[in-house]
Design a protein around this nucleic acid. Structure first.
Lengths: 246, 246
DNA sequence: GAGTGGTCTAGACCACGAC
DNA sequence: TCGTGGTCTAGACCACTCT
């Protein structure tokens, strides 16, 4: 039982304020990712609102991906996206369609530097704040297939700056969660076309100026803050992506 | 007032069936695009359901983009059922972000031929059945930007085979609906990378072997049958597509 | 002021999942 | 069988738009 009451008519709808209140409680860690929150009827009673109102509030959070409903079981806090796999954009070398295979990761470089103006803006950092920049190559069957540059805001990912990159996992998002308490909740990928420069081509064992597909990703945590910028390059001839409408 | 009644519990929810019924009435042209449909209270009364139920039905259609609500004014049928514009995959020549601009279409060739094995299969046609193959170029500000090859199963699109291609509209899907009664309900686009051959390059005013993005589309009608195969080519350097996860 | 969609209530019953 | 979310009802009042 909480002390929260929802007054009725300042500027926002009641279910809007309820959604914000519940979002805050989730972000404060009252319920962990994957955990069950109280039943709708319980919430309605404890907030003193009708069932329909709390349902509208929960629907907002479900739309945002913060919550997931399961008929007959309850409402859960969303677990972070492990996947959002880059592999969904590519089909490498006549493999099985099993896109669930995770490419092996090798960190090439790791360094601290000052954030660019654009980075400071998207991360919401002060001018001149520090970021951690990583470069890594990802391989399938020992064949390099993706080249990635990853930029992380330092205050949040300080724990990673001091750790041994050789001990890092192939998947970063679960590692972010374990080591830094950061849950990646949404990603946005923008795809475009480019060509590899000499260094990039060498690392992917391709010719210089070879055509590539560029994936520019912004990853967001549960609070909706951008906490990772990632640029991925892969052979354009391996690019294959399917999009459905309706 | 219509004769439509919604029985209460076969296999689907009441609002689901209401949504389907309303969608059918829209697709049959009972209300034109941009037109106002009856008020929620009126619809609720004429279908004999509660207001909340009709609101759920309308919400489904709003999500689908079939309807648009405007507080204080009413509910409108969405204009410009262009549906799945190819332009969402490209950003041509530093234009305004207004991706709603429709490129002009010019039909280059139109001919009847026998369906390939693969085409017969996806269309569900007999071996050796006829298809209509079109080639067209699409332009923005008189600059060619997309080259398309379109294959249509003849029995359904017979009306188009005999008509003057110069009188065709820029948007095919509304025309399919008007002239052939075919409503495109779902599309699936597969993107990959390629290069233009000499003929294609000439039509797009680009150099031979210029890199291009290939969009292979299957379009499905309300019954879920594939009724169009379309291959679209556009300058790879104009390719830009954004995908979100959760 | 009249008509529209938006919010909210307090109930009822149904469908699903686990025990 | 019980607790969960999903559907549905019949009202009420509010906020927006037009005339």
């Amino acid at each position: 039982m909480s002390t929260l009451l929802i007054d009725n008519t300042p500027g926002q709808s009641r279910y809007g304020k309820l959604a914000q209140a519940l979002r805050d409680r989730i972000l404060l860690g009252e319920w962990a990712p994957g955990e069950l929150i109280p039943a709708e009827s319980t919430l309605a009673q404890s907030y003193g609102v009708a069932l329909g109102t709390i349902r509208q509030a929960l629907s907002l959070l479900v739309e945002d991906g913060v919550l997931q409903r399961r008929h007959g079981k309850g409402t859960f806090v969303t677990k972070g996206v492990d996947g959002a796999s880059m592999m969904r954009f590519f089909r490498f070398r006549g493999l099985d369609d099993d896109s669930s295979t995770t490419p092996h990761s090798r960190i090439l470089t790791s360094r601290l530097r000052s954030a660019s103006v654009q980075e400071a803006h998207v991360f919401g950092l002060e001018h001149g704040a520090q970021v951690l920049q990583l470069e890594r190559v990802r391989s399938l069957d020992a064949e390099p297939c993706l080249l990635e540059t990853i930029v992380l805001p330092l205050p949040i990912f300080g724990a990673l700056a001091d750790s041994d990159t050789n001990a890092w996992d192939d998947l970063l998002y679960p590692m972010y969660q374990q080591r830094c308490g950061v849950v990646i909740q949404k990603t946005q990928d923008t795809l475009s076309f480019s060509q590899l420069n000499a260094t990039q081509a060498k690392r992917l064992k391709l010719a210089a100026s070879h055509p590539c597909v560029l994936v520019e990703r912004q990853a967001f945590d549960m609070a909706g803050r951008c906490v990772e910028l990632r640029t991925t390059r892969g052979d354009a001839y391996s690019f294959k992506y399917t999009a459905q409408v309706q």
